[in-house]
Amino acid sequence: MEVRTIKVFTTVDNINLHTQVVDMSMTYGQQFGPTYLDGADVTKIKPHNSHEGKTFYVLPNDDTLRVEAFEYYHTTDPSFLGRYMSALNHTKKWKYPQVNGLTSIKWADNNCYLATALLTLQQIELKFNPPALQDAYYRARAGEAANFCALILAYCNKTVGELGDVRETMSYLFQHANLDSCKRVLNVVCKTCGQQQTTLKGVEAVMYMGTLSYEQFKKGVQIPCTCGKQATKYLVQQESPFVMMSAPPAQYELKHGTFTCASEYTGNYQCGHYKHITSKETLYCIDGALLTKSSEYKGPITDVFYKENSYTTTIK
């Protein structure tokens, strides 16, 4: 009895394709271990004539594949690729409408935090270190965002349907971005203890939790000093293409032309909904596939993004 075979390709990165001759009487799992086709788990399936010449994702289970996976995804987590594939199996079914010149995501599976993050990423200057993220990001900007969303979920250790947080998501993504040249110098002034300067680099240099107003941050924000008295913390120097200011959701007025974009969060910790506000020729609110415009805006804002380049204080 002759062994019926077909020729397929296996890959971990969709760049390096490895030619395989597979036995049609055995499952993919018996031949390769966990195997995925377009995100779908085909591990328990036997090869079919229609699979001839198709590319299958496999887990990096030998040295060659491990090197290829690390170079593309910059992670050695053995569960990463499987999590990416199972997320992709959902995100490829989502709709990605162009809204006001940006790629958004039609609401499904509690994905409003991903839509808000995706919209924000198209408006701030950011370059990702893992080629996987950078490639998928370019495709997302062009309207094909399924891979990018699935990668975000995998890097953030999230599953489809789980509630997510924009600030946490951005923080994970910033860790995989090139923020080497970003720098922030802060000064804390206390009447009792004097003053202390701190220099922050990388992710810490672009994120701040405690106030939404970048102007206020430049002037000074009140913080408790270690001595128990009130101290003032203010920005001395900022070198970065953008800054992200966050605070627990509270009524906040966004003035046209003073910011790049913002995240609105309605609801409580267990259950809520994100919308995205962007400042173009007027203010726009993007909620999944829905767009509304207004000249002014007041609502429960939790993150505001500002364009920056270089700032030095005039406070002496």
Rank of each mutant, 00 (worst) to 15 (best):
249 P>S: 01
306 Y>R: 01
283 L>C: 09
192 T>P: 04
150 A>I: 02
142 A>P: 03
47 P>I: 06
59 L>E: 14
268 N>A: 15
36 Y>F: 10
30 Q>N: 14
5 T>S: 15
98 Q>I: 11
75 T>R: 09
144 E>G: 08
235 L>E: 01
290 L>Q: 13
46 K>N: 13
86 S>E: 15
67 V>F: 14
265 Y>I: 00
43 T>V: 08
247 A>E: 02
116 T>P: 05
311 Y>P: 08
254 L>D: 00
99 V>C: 11
166 V>G: 03
267 G>V: 08
108 A>F: 03
281 E>T: 06
63 D>E: 14
233 K>A: 12
315 I>P: 15
191 K>Y: 09
253 E>S: 09
179 L>K: 05
250 A>P: 02
51 H>I: 05
56 F>V: 09
302 T>M: 00
43 T>K: 10
69 A>P: 06
45 I>S: 12
13 D>E: 03
275 K>L: 05
61 N>P: 06
210 G>N: 04
161 G>P: 05
53 G>R: 12
158 K>F: 03
60 P>E: 07
179 L>D: 03
270 Q>V: 10
27 T>C: 14
27 T>S: 08
179 L>M: 07
277 I>K: 02
105 I>M: 04
179 L>H: 05
134 Q>A: 12
221 V>R: 04
278 T>C: 15
261 C>A: 05
235 L>M: 03
19 T>E: 15
233 K>C: 14
254 L>A: 02
202 G>R: 05
306 Y>G: 02
105 I>N: 01
251 Q>N: 13
75 T>H: 08
161 G>C: 06
286 I>M: 06
80 F>Q: 04
11 T>H: 05
274 Y>P: 00
291 L>T: 14
239 E>Q: 12
227 C>E: 03
14 N>S: 11
124 I>S: 02
138 Y>V: 15
133 L>E: 02
103 T>S: 05
190 C>A: 00
279 S>M: 07
90 H>M: 12
159 T>Y: 12
193 C>V: 02
201 K>W: 15
213 S>D: 13
6 I>F: 15
193 C>N: 06
193 C>L: 02
265 Y>N: 04
81 L>W: 08
6 I>G: 06
315 I>N: 15
258 T>W: 04
65 L>E: 07
243 V>P: 00
93 K>N: 15
241 P>V: 00
87 A>L: 07
230 Q>K: 13
263 S>D: 06
165 D>H: 02
7 K>E: 13
115 A>V: 04
131 P>H: 04
53 G>W: 10
143 G>C: 03
188 V>W: 06
315 I>R: 15
